[in-house]
C-alpha cells in the first residue's frame, strides 16, 4: 500500500489572510479581557483589521479575515457555538453585507470613517436582531437600543480614525502579494 499525500497548495494570499486574521483574533482576545459596563459593548478593535483588509485587499479577503476571526475567537474564548458566538457571527455578517454596499460610496467624499461607522451600526443591528428574535424575544432589548447605538457611533468613529491613519502606512509597509521581502516596497 502506498502512502498517499494530499498536498494543499498555499498561495501567498492564503498566508496574507492568515496573518491578518491572526492579528484580528489577537485584538479580539485582548478586547475580551477588557471589563465592559454593559455586556456586548466592546470597542470592536478587530474591525480595524477587517476595514484595513477591505480597503487594501478587497471584500473577499475582508470576509475571510472576519469569518476566521469569529470562528477562531470562538474557539480560543471557549464560546464556540454558544449564544455569544452566534451574536458575534450575526454582527460580522451584517457588517460585511453593509460594507459590501458601502465600499462603493465615492471615495472622494467618504473616507474610512464612514465605512467604520456604517459597519459598526450594522454590527450592532445584526446582533440585536438575532438577540431579539432568538435570545430575548419581547421588548427587553428595545430599552437598551440607544445605548448600543451610541456605542456603535463612538467606537465606529474612533476605529474609523485609526483606520484612516493606519491605511497610508500599511500601503507602504505591506509586502507585495507575490514577493516577500523585508524592505519597504511602495505600492499604490
Amino acid at each position: 500500500m502506498t502512502p498517499s499525500f494530499i498536498e494543499l497548495p498555499v498561495t501567498a494570499e492564503d498566508r496574507r489572510i492568515a496573518r491578518l486574521a491572526a492579528l484580528a483574533i489577537g485584538l479580539s482576545l485582548a478586547e475580551a479581557a477588557l471589563p465592559s459596563p454593559v455586556p456586548g459593548i466592546k470597542p470592536g478593535l478587530a474591525n480595524i483589521v477587517v476595514l484595513l483588509v477591505l480597503l487594501r485587499y478587497g471584500w473577499r479577503a475582508a470576509a475571510w479575515v472576519s469569518g476566521l476571526r469569529v470562528l477562531a475567537g470562538g474557539i480560543l474564548l471557549g464560546t464556540l457555538f454558544a449564544p455569544g458566538f452566534w451574536l458575534s457571527a450575526a454582527g460580522a455578517c451584517t457588517s460585511l453585507a453593509v460594507l459590501a454596499a458601502a465600499r462603493h460610496l465615492p471615495a472622494r467624499h467618504f473616507g474610512p470613517l464612514s465605512l467604520s461607522v456604517l459597519a459598526a451600526f450594522a454590527h450592532i443591528a445584526g446582533q440585536l436582531a438575532l438577540a431579539a428574535v432568538w435570545l430575548l424575544p419581547g421588548i427587553a432589548v428595545l430599552k437598551l437600543l440607544p445605548v448600543f447605538a451610541a456605542a456603535a457611533l463612538v467606537f465606529g468613529a474612533v476605529n474609523g480614525v485609526i483606520v484612516a491613519r493606519l491605511l497610508p502606512r500599511m500601503a507602504l509597509a505591506a509586502p507585495t502579494p507575490d514577493r516577500r521581502q523585508s524592505g519597504p516596497c511602495p505600492t499604490p
Binding site: L105, H109, L113, V117
Partner: peptide, 26 residues
C-alpha cells in the same frame, strides 16, 4: 483626513442615536 461625507455619516449616526433614545426612553 475626514471628508465631507464622513461628517454626513457622523451627523446621520448622531441623529439615529437621538431618535432611538427618544423612541425607546421618552
Amino acid at each position: 483626513m475626514l471628508k465631507a461625507g464622513d461628517f454626513g455619516v457622523l451627523a446621520a449616526g448622531t441623529a439615529t442615536v437621538a431618535a432611538l433614545a427618544w423612541w425607546a426612553w421618552f
